[in-house]
Amino acid sequence: MTGHTGWVTGDPAAPASASWASFLDRMVGDSLEWLDAARGDFRLPPNVTTDADPNLTLKPLGELAELTHLIRTSHPRDELRQVADGLFAFAWNETRGAELFAELIRGEPHATYPVEIYGVFAQAGLRNTTVEQLLAATTGLRGWRVTRDDHTRTLAVLNAERRIGLAPHADFEAVLGLTNLGLMPEPWALDRGGAYGLTHDVFHLTDWGRARGRLPRAQADYLRLWLPAWLENWLDEELWDLAGELLAVTACLPAAPYDPVAWRRLADARRADGSVPDRGAGPPAGDRAATFTACYHSTLVTAFAGTLARIALGAVEGDTRAQVHESEATR
């Protein structure tokens, strides 16, 4: 059975599944290869804790840590896990054993991004006593509990608090109910900003695809119905970054459907070096700084989405084989 863009929800154990697994592995591998070659562009500048723009410095490094951690622990292919592990270790080294976070927290006690970024390292078992003492103090302040306008961002903070072991400053379910995912707005009214927010609602709820079972039935049905149309729309706009995030969300659904048409279109958007521009063809070749800015996130998202799709494909294959074996045993 297929959807608007070609969802495959039939027997995943068909011979084509092996070729799709190989295709996804190449997508992840090419993306990781480009990211590995771009390590220098992820390095933090000396003024990172003072007047550097965190959106151009800490945000890329935090995203590198978040998504490579998932790949290093979850991808079925050992060689791809190793590349992701090297990138994750690089990100940790850039934090100077988390001393960076202590400086950031002292400078901005109410800032959420140090907590969000530190959370993924804490989840990996990389902890710093000084940072955690500071966090215990700052997250216990009344100011930390002031309601944030961006409810999706609040979910990110709550997920980080859970990872670190801090007391949650708000009720996760209550905050989720105020987001695009929780409210399930009219699908035709979902604009680009809302779509990005919705994808991250899913990521924070499921801990970036690790806990797909947390997705409520109503929201899963809503996404299953409308994701194909949204994907088709933003693929037509050549907004590859958002298309990749929507493919990652697709892989978080129960019995995750697989959209070969959308994946082929995303694959066709890749540049010769394996990078994926955030939109269109990206900047001209040779402009390293512009290429990094335009490609790092969408390339990371491609590797992340490919990993989730690969895990989901293997999980459904395993379920199908188990059902076949059980059927044979009862004959």
Rank of each mutant, 00 (worst) to 15 (best):
G314T: 04
P187E: 11
F101E: 03
R271E: 09
A89Q: 11
V157E: 06
W240Q: 12
G29E: 11
W7P: 05
P228V: 01
A303I: 09
P284K: 14
L215N: 05
G193M: 12
A124C: 04
A269R: 03
A262Q: 08
N93T: 11
Y118T: 10
L141N: 02
A21N: 08
H169L: 12
P254A: 04
A98Y: 15
T299N: 06
E66M: 12
A229W: 10
A160K: 03
L61F: 07
G209E: 01
R192M: 14
N159C: 15
T179C: 13
E328Q: 14
Q323R: 12
V324F: 10
D78G: 13
L205A: 05
D150Q: 08
A14G: 08
T147V: 14
E108P: 00
T250S: 04
G244C: 14
R331W: 14
E132W: 13
A84E: 03
L176W: 14
W34L: 06
V131G: 03
D51C: 08
D11I: 02
T139C: 08
F304A: 00
R270M: 08
I164V: 08
L141M: 12
R192V: 08
P109Y: 09
L155A: 11
W263T: 00
W7T: 06
A137P: 07
E245T: 10
D85R: 09
A294M: 04
A309H: 00
A195V: 02
Y113V: 07
R224D: 13
M27N: 14
D273N: 02
R212G: 02
G193S: 13
G40C: 12
R77K: 13
G40K: 15
L67D: 01
A255T: 02
P277T: 02
L227D: 00
P228G: 06
G280K: 13
M1K: 10
Q219D: 06
L58C: 12
A303V: 07
R145M: 09
Y118P: 03
A37R: 10
L300G: 01
A52C: 13
D171P: 05
L183Y: 11
D241H: 09
L231N: 01
R26M: 11
A248S: 02
A294C: 04
E108L: 09
A269M: 03
P109N: 02
H200L: 10
G10E: 04
L183I: 14
N93I: 01
I105L: 09
A255H: 15
A89K: 11
E99G: 03
R331G: 14
G29H: 09
A122W: 07
E99A: 06
A21W: 03
L100T: 10
T299Q: 00
T291G: 00
H325E: 15
D30G: 14
R270T: 02
A315N: 08
P283M: 08
L308A: 06
V175Y: 05
V48C: 02
V115E: 09
F172M: 04
D221L: 05
R145I: 03
V48T: 07
F203I: 05
L67C: 02
L100N: 06
A285M: 10
E33F: 07
L223G: 04
G97H: 03
I164H: 11
Y196L: 11
R39T: 12
